[in-house]
């Protein structure tokens, strides 16, 4: 069977679908001071999961606010710099108007994902960290 680390090189999704792959990629991003990009990507997925599971509205609002404050509010943060102004104001509006919906972070997640796919992921595949692992 194909070893997991070769699958990681197939696509960003195959990497992020594997626990060890995700861990190694996060270690790499941490070295580059941009682990927040990956944390944000997972936070968006977690938010959607929580939304889909129904239940506690207060918790969803609290989480949406937490994500907004930690990653988006500060325009100079690494995540915020990669997200379009229109996308940021859409999320801000959702939080301010307490209009929480499952897809409210989807566009921002897509923009961060595109950035990971075009930049950090290819660099990771050429990094010493990945090469040593393989």
């Amino acid at each position: 069977p194909t070893p997991p680390y070769l699958k990681w090189a197939e696509s960003l999704h195959s990497l992020l679908d594997d626990q060890d792959g995700t861990h190694l990629f996060r270690t790499f991003l941490k070295q580059e001071d941009c682990a927040d990009l990956l944390d944000f990507w997972f936070a968006c997925s977690g938010f959607r999961k929580l939304e889909a599971s129904g239940g506690n509205e207060e918790k969803k609002l609290k989480l949406a606010k937490a994500i907004y404050r930690k990653y988006i509010l500060d325009n100079n943060s690494i995540v915020s710099r990669q997200i379009k102004a229109a996308t940021k104001s859409f999320i801000r509006d959702c939080v301010v108007r307490v209009h929480i919906e499952p897809a409210m972070l989807d566009q921002a997640q897509t923009e961060i994902q595109a950035m990971l796919e075009e930049n950090t992921y290819p660099v990771f595949l050429k990094s010493d960290l990945y090469l040593e692992y393989t």
Binding site: L16, D17, D18, Q19, G21, T22, D39, F42, A43, C44, S45, G46, F47, K49, L50, K59, K62, L63, K65, A66, I67, R69, K70
Partner: peptide, 20 residues
């Protein structure tokens, strides 16, 4: 603030892949 951080961590962990 602490509980907000905990909530965020819990959310991130919930989306991360589990051991296969």
């Amino acid at each position: 603030i602490d509980s907000e951080d905990d909530l965020l961590q819990e959310c991130i962990s919930s989306a991360m892949p589990k051991k296969k």
